[in-house]
Each structure stands twice: as structure tokens, then as C-alpha cells.
Design a protein around this nucleic acid. Sequence first.
RNA 1: GAUCCCAUAGCUCAACUGGAUAGAGCAUCAGCCUUCUAAGCUGAGGGUUGCAGGUUCGAGUCCUGCUGGGAUCGCCA
Length: 592
Amino acid sequence: MNIFAVMKSRLDAVLGGLMAAGKLPPGLDLARVSVEPPREAGMGDLTTNAAMVLAKPTGMAPKVLAELLVEALKGVEDVTAASTAGPGFINIQLNAAVWRGALLDVLKEGRAYGDSTTGAGEPVNIEYVSANPTGPMHVGHARGAVMGDVLARLLAKAGFAVTKEYYINDAGGQVDNVAAALRMRYLQALGRISEADVQGALERKEIQYGGAYLLPVAEALKTRDGDKWAEVNDPAAWIPPLRDFTVEYMMKLVREDLKDLGVHHDVFSSEKALVETGKVDDALKFLADAGLTYTGVLEPPKGKTPDDWEPRPQLLFKATQFGDEVDRPLKKSSGVGTYFASDIAYHKDKVDRGFKNLVNIWGADHGGYVKRVQAALKALTNGEGKLDVQLCQMVRVLNNGEPVKMSKRAGTFVTLRDLIDEVGKDVVRFIMLTRKNDAPLDFDYAKVMEKSRENPVFYVQYAHARGRSVFRHAATMFPQADLSDAGLAKADLSRLADVDEVALLRFLANWPRTVEAAALAHEPHRLAFYMYELASQFHGLWNKGNDATELRFLQADDAAVSLARLALVRGVGLVIASGLTVFGVEPLEEMR
RNA sequence: GAUCCCAUAGCUCAACUGGAUAGAGCAUCAGCCUUCUAAGCUGAGGGUUGCAGGUUCGAGUCCUGCUGGGAUCGCCA
């Protein structure tokens, strides 16, 4: 149960009553009325902006309206007092049992606390990672992978029907280039050419991918096919099979990496399959029938004309009709379809499968691509489809503040595999969520393993482990007590009287609305900050017992108060576990 | 030249999508361990939210224009 949502609906009912009684004009829009925690603890339990938001539409002064509402709120269930403050805020006091009720909810629902039906089962398609199958996954992919995976879990928790999807770019020039590079490495594996030959080809730009990661792929090809491809010189004959071999091999590695990162996709969609089944042509025909394509010549980009630029007629999409700056090419001057054409077909395919609510997680280097895909989606759905693109900024990998660039495996960048091997999946996942995705992120090997408050993943886990530690002690101190969640729910929670205990109760009640807001805003990082704050409050309460021993959770001579406090400790642990579950991170029982 | 993102305490970042006196950590200073984990906690100082306008009851948040940083810019994906 979300107390803030419940009180909002009761407030709406009060306002409705006032409208019906003619004390307020009928038909007021209540959407902007909010019920939130107050800024400071002394201001009461809840605060609402109703009087300020409704001042203009009612034509009443905020203070006058606030007085009217304060009067009307007095009879509302759980409200013990209400008062006006500041420019027209209404602060509301609630029956203390309401907050204790939140803790009972936590104990009853466990990690499911915070689940909601906000999404109403609406299908959402979330596409993430979608790394080209041309090499190992690196840190940038890791951020997108975690962001997408956790956003998907978060949306599911908020009641959406989520489909997690990976788009394999297994068509087009890039994969052909990898095939060419693989052929060089293959010839090297056969002993026909040397490492120097490969490097020479790289320098002359005859091949684009030369990383040593292709050596095992070449060995695998040799093992499977022997020297079968060494004598085949017609590219049309060797490119397709070598390309398919590489894609398959790379996708196997990608799937292994994702699995070890705890990332799972429901659907893998292939660009090649879209081309081969005619879906790209279908999509282009759809746009042509709508009169949204034409053959034309694009202007060169201003200020930065490529040296080899020359005007050429191409098939173009009228993206400018949907808010883009220029019309975008669907076919290269050679007549071959562009990546954009495939992507249109892919998004049309998503729409045809019943998704109107789409989310894509991309790297920031794709920022210039957002408008055209959104334009295409509008064209495909008559404006009904929604596409939210979340761009992930760069990840800088550091070690004690020093940039880390080299990877043992890939040569030029830090791979996802390196990260997992170095610090473990759970740490990688959590740290990736400690910034909003449109801000750059520093990933410092030393910092993320540090055991201090500076390291959020440690700090949150430590709070959880401390809570478990209390229970280990409680089991010996009160061997007769029922310390199960159901047993703790029977404790006399009115014994939680200290101001910080009550504050913690309130904060636990904030979890459902935090989850909901984070889900709707597509901002999973908010959960990381909530957990950090919760951990902070918990550590603070813990240490309050240093000075005031009567505030320690366990009181050997007072089982009743001990059980009430254990219920609170357990509630904190369960909410942390709830958050970590969304993050795909396992809460720790102890830190040793 | 254009588009997108960013700019908040000395440093790294929050701020519940327009609310009350802008909050944390680090660093600095002053305190707390015969103790359920001191791997922690308490307190103090530290701000013209890059600049200039605008919108309104109210702006770090929205709009316009600057400045600085990053990303991208037909026939790559």
C-alpha cells in the first residue's frame, strides 16, 4: 500500500465533495495536486500543494482555499490534524498507526513490497545492449546492459508487461568487415601469413578489425573447416559463410557475458532476418504508400563538408514532417538499404507485435540518431507510438584515480569481462546505477571495492548485513521468540517511540512511491539514492545506541521492545533487499 | 555551421519532474569504541545553482539568448 497514493485519493474525494456542495467550482482538474512527504520532519507527516495549484482555477486566494481544505480534512480517516503553512501548503498529521501499518506491509510482502499496478499491464518493449557482433563487449555496453535490465525489472515491479529485447546488427558493412578481418586471422592461423602481414593490412586500412580477440575465432574456424577457405578468393563466396561464423561466435560470447552479468533478454531480433524476410521492403513500401518517401539529393552538412562529398540522388524519408532537421536516407546511392531503413523495419515490427510503448537504451554517440527514429515511429503509427530513448554517457574506468585504458583481451578498451572478473557482477551492476544515465560515470576499481561510506554498494550491503547480525544475536538472546516475519508482525510496534525510529518507519513508507516515480521517469538510479539514504538512517540509529544504551535494538530485560525494534530492523533489511532485487544484486548476510 | 546532452559547496554528486530555509559524501576542524560489526556514528564551517533576461503566487527545475565542456553530423552501424 502506498500511503501517499491513498491519501491523495482521499484528498481528491474531499475536493470532490466540496465541488458537489458548491463550495468549489465543479470540474476542477486535480492532476497537479500532489501529496508528498514534507520538506522537514517538523512540518507534519504529509504535505499537499492543493491550495496553491487550485488557487487560479477557483479564483480563490491560496490561504483562503487552504483554510477551507483544512476544515474539510478534519473528518478524513487517519487524519489527526491539518494546518496551513508558508504560501499555502497544507501540512497533515496522521494517526501514528498509519506508519506502523507500512512496516506491517513490509513484513507481510517482503521483497515484493513496493510492487504496484501503476503500469496496468500495459506492454512495454525495452531494447538494450544491441552491441554489434563484431567484438567483445566493453564497459559502455555494460552500462547500457545494466540500465536496460534494471529498468525492465523496475517497470515490471510497477505493473507493466515488459519484453526485453536485443537487436542483432548482423547485416550490412560492419559484419562484412569483420569477416574480412577474420579471413586474415584465419590465414595467420594456418601459417600462410604472419602477424606483421595482419598489422600491415590494418595500417593500410584493408581491414578494420584486427584485435587479437579474433585469433580464437580463427582457430575455431580452422578446427571446423580446415584450410577450406584459404583457396577461395572470390569474396562473394567466402564473405557470407565467414560472416555468419563470426556473428554466431560473437553472439555466443555476448550471451555468455550477459549471463555472467545477470542480464537476460526475452527476444533476440536479427537485422539480417528482417532483410531476408522482406520486412525492410515492406516498411519502405508502407512509407511510400503514405507519400513519405522521395528520391532527392541532400545538402552537404554545413561547416564540415566531407572531402569526398558530391551530390547523389537517394531514396529519402520525409523526416522533416515529423520534427527532424533534414530528410534521412533510406537507400545508399548504390541502391542498397541503409541501417536506418532496417531500423524502421525493426520498429515497425515491434509495433506490429503490439507495442506502442517503446524504450531504447543507446550509447550517447547515437544521440544524433534519436530524432529520426522517433520521426519514423510517428510516421508508422500515426503518432500513437511512444519511443523513449535513454542515452547512456561514457564510463571512465579508473584505478585509484588513474585512467585504465588497456584490456588484456581487447587491446584498446576495458571489456565487460575484465570488469566482472575484477570486482564481480553485483558491484558492477550497482555502481552502474549510481548516476543518472545522461551523466558520465567514473568507475574506479579501487573505490568500488573500498569498504567505506564513500562506496555506496558497500554502504548499503553493510546496512543489510548489520541487520542480519542483530538477528543472529537476537536468536541467542531470545531463544523462545518467534523471529519470523509473521511473528514480528505481532510485536507491539507502539514501542517504537524514539524520534529516529519513527523517522525510519516513515522512510520505509516512502519506498512504494519512490519505486513508482522512478519507474515512470525511467530513472532506476533513484532507487540507488533511496537505498543509500535508508542505509544512512539505519547506521545512524544503530550508533545512537552507542551513547544511549537504552536505544539499542536488543534489550535483554525487555523482550517486547526488542521485538518491536527487530521488526523495524527486519523492515529495513527487506526494503533494501527489495531494492537490490530490482538491481539484480544479492543482499549479503555478512560482510566477512 | 547545425542538432542533442551537461554545467549545483574546494572535489564527486542529490534535489521526489514547478514548491517551503538547495541537501549528502569526500576533504578540513571538533567529538564518540570495557558496545548488537568504529568497515560505523555525532557536530561545525563551506552556495549569487556558469552568465543575462523572461514566464508565475513560487524557478536549480520551464522558455529565449549567451559562455564553457562532451557527443554527433549523406552513401558507418
